[in-house]
Write a protein that binds this DNA or RNA. Structure first.
Length: 626
RNA sequence: GGUCCCGUAGCUCAGCUGGAUAGAGCAACUGCCUUCUAAGCAGUAGGUCGGGGGUUCGAAUCUUCCCGGGAUCACCA
């Protein structure tokens, strides 16, 4: 039984016996004992003063004395102000360490975790990396808590963005392929996307400079507007702000009337009409991108059970909107558009269907959620790993689903995470400040290689083993760095300084694991597995480790409940730190008492297993040697 | 302007269902490798927890206002 349960029952009895007062279990709350004092768990007695009618010190002493004589697991206590610090008997901790984990976990609800969700016009970047790591880790954490998890990816494979790459390749690609160019497919398609934007920028400048002289398709009203805007924009007496505004409008007009813009719109129209050549080109380009993505995913060490494509889902949801109309959940406006009114919920009105009957983004999301639920009837919850700039969108989505009568809407969760910022500010693709995932990972691995070689600890590794180690370490550094931060907070990533291999880092934890495994290898004989707990007096550092192991299930549950992998990261760091301190101060293999030696080996092994398991929840591998 | 999130050491972050003197890592400074891997351990220094009020025996934590930063408020995705 958990020590908290044992104690709270005893304390309720104590309060009854001592003060004839009845307290509910919920009134008895424990906290960690301040490390400056002796004790394993602490009771705050302030809530009981009214019942005891004594001062805090006396009340705490009363309860402490009662527990010491009536509760076998309490071996001692001390009182500091209103805090009753309880010392729990070594026998309890040893038993908790030896006892087999109760793996009789009931099967919990099935959950779908959607994460990654890339566009097919550019490679994976640092922002996606945070998303991917969070989504993957949450899936692992939920599985460890007894849920069945379906990992899903929703690829945005259609729309104006991919048409830009397609058009650019058609115009300037000269039949080049990723193979011929020797470039990874996703980077290669991204190259054409950037090319398109640059050419468009050039065309816009040309139009602006020539004052729309070569633009053929302006009607009379537009011509007049352009003329008027130029007279404002070039009027020296006009206010700066108004001039700026005029330039912006001209810019927008120039963009709309650029041949490239019209070309890309035409291509999108053809795609939607199912034009064969366009579809073939689209498939070819996306195929290259998927090859590139697959390589990146494999390198990061993640995968999906199910991949959805927006080209197959973007028309979904219209039926649900009609159903909503029939149920009077939605409102049809005179112009034909359909909205939902969420003013009661402190949200606003939201358009669900345009006046021309076409769908908007949220229509699709409503449709896919319902489709997925039909496809996986056992799935009771959906987790959407999406950046916090879409907080509002998901509030509206979940409310809408709820209003449509879907009970599972309550189990939908937006795993919202903050942006990854660079020292110079936000990443902007237009300014070329985006940190590319493939490059970043390569740099991490290179740094791991340099550091490891400088330390010179792997002389007997084969080159394959060494490369695998560099990969493990580099990825651990990156993954841990990102996952140790609370998801909802924005985080700063400094490519030059952020990645360290010392202190609170992935490699530090890996190192702790490797050191333990080194000891285990040296101790590897059958006789060194057995010990008798009866004759062991725990050292403080041993007790710290056992207590940390004891607390793991609670933290695992907390990480799932809060959708927060950083809880696991912090725990793993605490465990590694505690082990290193133990390792430094206490002999293991050199201990002459056989019983004690074997116990310490067993304890070390258990810590190693725990580290490995916790790191696995973060998607981080641990090496046997490093 | 409305809504939401954030503001803790020089830097990056913990701590937030109220609880003891606010913790780590990095950077700086000190020690510790003839001893189980020094990617380690131990220590020094560094804080008006953005600011003011309120609730409370007790506030970094709850509440309110103010200041500062960000996101969002499309018949875009």
């Amino acid at each position: 039984m958990k020590i908290e349960e044992i104690l709270s029952q005893s304390i309720i009895n104590a309060l009854k016996t001592l003060y004839t007062a009845d307290f509910d279990k919920s009134a008895v709350v424990f906290q960690k004992t301040n490390p400056d004092f002796e004790g394993d768990i602490t009771l705050v007695v302030f809530p009981f003063l009214k019942a005891s009618k004594k001062n805090p010190e006396q009340t705490a002493a009363d309860i402490g004395n009662y527990l010491k004589s009536n509760c076998a697991d309490v071996s001692n206590f001390n009182v500091v102000k209103g805090f009753l610090n309880l010392v729990i008997a070594d026998s309890y901790w040893l038993n908790s360490f030896i006892a087999k984990e109760t793996t009789s976990q009931e099967q919990k609800a099935e959950i779908m975790v959607e994460y990654c969700s890339p566009n097919t016009n550019k490679p994976i970047h640092l922002g996606h990396v945070r998303n991917i790591l969070l989504g993957w880790s949450m899936a692992q954490i939920l599985e460890a808590n007894g849920h069945k998890v379906i990992k899903a990816n929703l690829v945005n494979d259609r729309g104006i963005h991919i048409c830009k790459s397609m058009l650019a390749w058609q115009k300037w690609g000269k039949g080049e392929t990723p193979e011929k160019a020797g470039i990874k497919g996703d980077h290669w398609v991204g190259k054409y996307y950037v090319m398109f934007e640059q050419k468009l920028l050039g065309e816009r400048s040309e139009i602006l400079e020539s004052e729309f002289a070569h633009v053929q398709d302006l009607n009379a009203a537009e011509k007049e507007e352009v003329f008027n805007l130029y007279s404002i924009a070039k009027n020296l007496d006009e206010k700066e702000e108004i001039k700026k505004n005029a330039w912006e409008k001209l810019n927008e007009l120039a963009r709309l009337h650029a041949d490239l813009s019209k070309g890309v719109q035409e291509m999108l129209r053809k795609w939607e009409a199912g034009d064969e050549a366009t579809i073939a080109l689209w498939k070819k380009m996306n195929g290259w991108v998927y090859d590139g993505f697959a390589e990146t995913f494999k390198c990061i060490g993640i995968r999906f059970d199910k991949t959805y494509y927006e080209s197959q889902t973007y028309l979904l949801g219209k039926k649900a909107v009609e159903e909503g109309l029939a149920k009077n959940v939605f409102i049809k406006r005179p112009d034909g558009s359909v909205i939902i009114d969420l003013k009661q919920e402190k949200l606003d009105e939201k358009v669900l269907l345009r006046s021309d009957g076409t769908s908007v983004y949220i229509t699709q999301d409503i449709g896919t959620a319902i489709e997925r639920h039909k496809e996986f009837p056992n799935v009771k919850g959906f987790i959407y790993t999406v950046g916090n700039e879409q907080d509002y969108h998901f509030k509206v989505l979940f409310k809408t689903l709820k209003k449509l009568g879907y009970a599972w809407a309550d189990n939908c969760y937006h795993l919202s995470y903050g942006m990854v910022e660079l020292p110079e500010g936000k990443m902007k693709s237009r300014e070329g400040t985006v940190v590319d995932a493939d490059e970043l990972i390569k740099e991490m691995i290179d740094t791991a290689r340099e550091t490891t070689q400088a330390l010179g600890k792997i002389e007997n590794f084969t080159s394959d083993e060494a490369e695998n180690l560099y990969r493990m370490i580099g990825l651990a550094a990156l993954k841990y760095f990102i996952l140790k931060v609370d998801p909802k907070k924005k985080m700063l990533f400094n490519p030059k300084e952020s990645i360290d291999f010392n202190g609170n880092t992935g490699p530090f934890i890996q190192y702790t694991y490797a050191r333990i495994k080194s000891i285990i290898r040296k101790a590897e004989t059958a006789s060194e597995q057995n010990y008798s707990a009866a004759h062991i007096n725990l050292d403080a550092k041993e007790k710290t480790l056992i207590k940390l192991l004891y607390h793991y299930p609670a933290l695992l549950a907390q990480a799932a409940k809060e959708y927060n992998p950083s809880v696991i990261a912090a725990y793993t760091y605490d465990l590694a730190t505690a082990y290193n301190s133990f390792y430094h101060d206490i002999h293991i293999l050199k201990e002459e008492n056989r019983n004690l030696k074997n116990f310490r080996i067993a304890l070390s092994l258990k810590v190693a297993e725990q580290i490995k398991q916790a790191m696995q929840l973060l998607g981080i591998e641990v090496p046997e040697r490093m």
